[in-house]
Amino acid sequence: MQLALFWIFSILMLAFALGVVFLRNPVSSAMSLVMTFVALAAVFVTLDAFFIAVVQVLVYAGAVMVLFLFIIMLLDLRAEKHRKVRPSAWLGGGLVVGGFMAAISQVIAGWSALHQTKPELSDPSFNDVAGVGFTLFRDFNLPFQIIGVLLLVATVGVVLLSRKELK
């Protein structure tokens, strides 16, 4: 059952990921990306990571992609439709992708954990929201604080770079 679900959602995810790359209309690309995120969230659910799945849908498929779509529609990107892709770009991209795939498949083929099944949760009532919270605010407190500083800097930067006339 779980394996079947994994394959269904993985194939969905990959199909829509290809759509992101190959569809010529930017809005269709963005919507394919939403579907990729949703399928990824489903895979997280099969791994019992409910909180991550919900966050994946809320933050990525929801907030981030809405922003994306807004910008695409505001900019009215038509040039993408008429863009010709040069053969040399095809060749270069193909080589990189092929090399990467070859490397990954070789790595995975030899991996000892390949045929392990997912271990069951030792405590089925485990609260993963609390778990993420404890990990984030207690175990990883210092990196978390650094991310706070990062967000402050990013906010300052957005104001600096996007205001028409700085006051």
């Binding site: 800097v153 300052v156 600096l160």
Partner: peptide, 24 residues
């Protein structure tokens, strides 16, 4: 720790993005 390396590196890189593009 890799998590720490990643967070610190991103703080540095993001502040550099802004500074490099400063002269609008």
């Amino acid at each position: 720790d890799f998590i720490m390396i990643f967070c610190a590196l991103e703080l540095v890189t993001i502040s550099f993005y802004i500074q490099v593009a400063y002269l609008r």
